[in-house]
């Protein structure tokens, strides 16, 4: 997969050299051309075409920015509400993530999503300790977000 991306970049560079125009537009056109060439020759590579991985990565980023907007709105609303009515707390959460990359990715994403800050990770047991802003109302939505993120991360990494 890394091989294919490097090859694609090489095609884009050669396209720019042939045109002798060093602009962003030429690079993008060359990159699209290279992706097309590699896609049409995908039978000769040992690994499948990297487009599917790229697509699932784009889906992860989209999901993440959506969640960031929602969480920011929730936190802001709780701050500017005239009477502060929250019950913060820390609770345990199991994860399916095993490798270090997946764990740190999930922790980063969870920290930026609705009302949760990851406080401590026990990687051997696969447990995360999460601080939530309002435990009774948010625990369910945090668990649901975790499931969606885990599915997306597994799709990207494995």
């Amino acid at each position: 997969m890394t091989m294919q991306i490097l090859l694609n970049l090489l095609v884009a560079m050669i396209w720019m050299l042939l045109h002798d125009k060093w602009s962003m537009l030429t690079f993008v056109i060359g990159f699209i051309l290279g992706a097309f060439i590699i896609f049409s020759m995908r039978r000769f590579f040992p690994t499948p075409f990297y487009g599917r991985k790229l697509w699932s990565l784009a889906k992860l980023v989209g999901l993440f920015s959506l969640e960031l907007f929602v969480s920011s709105a929730v936190v802001s609303w709780q701050i500017i509400r005239p009477r502060l009515n929250i019950e913060p707390g820390i609770f345990k959460m199991k994860t399916r993530m095993r490798t270090e990359w997946e764990l740190s990715m999930l922790a980063n994403l969870m920290t930026l999503t609705p009302g949760s800050v990851v406080m401590e990770i026990a990687p051997d047991e696969g447990i995360m300790y999460v601080h939530a802003m309002d435990v009774p109302s948010m625990k369910k939505s945090i668990l649901r977000t975790r499931d969606r993120f885990e599915d997306a991360i597994i799709e990207v990494m494995r």
């Binding site: 936190v75 802001s76 701050i79 502060l84 920290t111 800050v117």
Partner: peptide
């Protein structure tokens, strides 16, 4: 500005870190 207001109003460090990480980043 809202997240700075959160610094004033929220009760402890952990809830303040919610305000600091989310609203300021966005």
């Amino acid at each position: 500005l809202i997240s700075s207001l959160g610094f004033l109003r929220l009760p402890d460090v952990y809830t303040r870190s919610h305000a600091a990480t989310k609203s300021i980043t966005l």
